[in-house]
């Protein structure tokens, strides 16, 4: 299936800073990417890399002391950074929805599932309660919940963790959004449940053309699901491109380090390549390239923040001393 070329979402040079007592934390510092209809973008990074704040910025959910300082978030050409609160309310849940890591955070524990789902439909549409319930029932069935009629009358605590996450996903799907931002939705789940959920979202993207941003720290999930990938480190995207090109031939030393630290069947029992040290605090970032102190390729040039360089086929890279193709590990069996 092919969709029109104009991207559903375009983020341009987004900067979201947190103005704390300890100083300015540049959680998102000049991030640009775009997602097209029916495409899946994997946003990968470790804790504190700014991937969640990027997601929150798109939905307009950044709270004090955080603020979007500059940049544009274009949803079908409309800039969400300058959109009014009222306009954001219209868009959220109808055109853009979010799935959070912890479904207990999304679901209200004292309301039944049907109340919460019908509310989400009626907030955006003049529709009778019965019709809304009918749609809620259909969507619950779609995400693989058995006997949806009975389950609609249940409270969140009566569901298991995997079922709860599926309810949260069902609520995100209710109004057939154009864009879903999913923030580590399967991290807390078992692999078989994760497989069920990946199946549902994959079906949704290919059938309805929903664009999906999948935020995760798990490279192997992104490898199977996404079309494109952005690797974030300390608030900046260090490398981006198609999944195959980035994972088969990582050019940034951080991407390379991340891939080599994942246990893989080819290297069983052999010590894993490890990235020395740990991610820096956003309040005390090193000068120049933030990865410099942990980087095996570091040179004097790295004292200056590297610019984004464009490679072929939409690959982008932020590094003074990129690895060449030969150094990279061969992953294919």
């Amino acid at each position: 299936m092919s969709f029109s070329d104009s991207p559903t979402l375009e983020v341009k040079d987004l900067k979201t800073y947190f103005f704390t007592k300890g100083g300015i934390a540049r959680a998102v510092d000049g991030v640009s990417f775009s997602v097209g209809r029916g495409k899946v973008l994997g946003l990968v990074g470790e804790s504190g890399s700014g991937k969640t704040v990027t997601g929150f910025s798109i939905l307009g959910l950044v709270d004090e002391p955080g603020r979007i300082v500059s940049g544009e978030i274009l949803y079908r050409g409309e800039n969400l950074v300058s959109a009014s609160m009222g306009r954001m309310r219209e868009l959220r849940g109808l055109n853009i929805s979010m799935i959070f890591q912890d479904p207990m955070m999304t679901l209200n524990p004292v309301l039944r599932i049907d109340t919460q789902m019908i509310e989400a439909i009626q907030a955006h549409e003049k529709i009778s309660k019965d019709d809304a319930r009918q749609r809620a029932r259909d969507v619950l069935g779609q995400v693989g919940i058995a006997s949806p009629d009975e389950r609609l009358r249940a409270y969140p605590h009566q569901f298991s963790g995997g079922m709860r996450q599926r309810v949260a996903i069902a609520i995100a799907l209710l109004n057939k959004p154009d864009l879903i931002v999913a923030d580590e939705p399967t991290t807390a789940l078992d692999v078989t449940i994760q497989g069920q959920i990946l199946y549902e979202v994959q079906k949704l993207c290919s059938q309805t053309g929903t664009a999906l941003i999948w935020i995760t720290h798990d490279l192997s999930v992104v490898a199977g699901l996404a079309d494109d990938i952005c690797v974030m480190y300390a608030g900046r995207i260090v490398e981006q491109g198609s999944v195959n090109s980035v994972l088969d031939n990582p050019r940034h030393p951080y991407t390379h380090g991340l891939i080599s630290s994942v246990p893989s069947r080819n290297r069983r029992g052999v010590p894993l390549a490890q990235i020395p040290g740990m991610a820096p605090s956003l309040l005390k970032l090193p000068k120049g390239c933030s990865f410099g102190p942990r980087c095996p390729q570091v040179t004097a040039d790295c004292g200056i923040i590297p610019n984004i360089s464009m490679l072929d086929k939409g690959r982008q890279l932020r590094c003074h001393n990129p690895l060449d193709a030969l150094v990279s590990p061969k992953l294919k069996d």
Binding site: V191, G195, S220, V221, A223, N244
Partner: peptide, 11 residues
């Protein structure tokens, strides 16, 4: 089990 080697798989 998700693996780095499996790309764009059909779940």
């Amino acid at each position: 089990v998700p693996r780095l080697e499996t790309r764009q798989r059909k779940f």
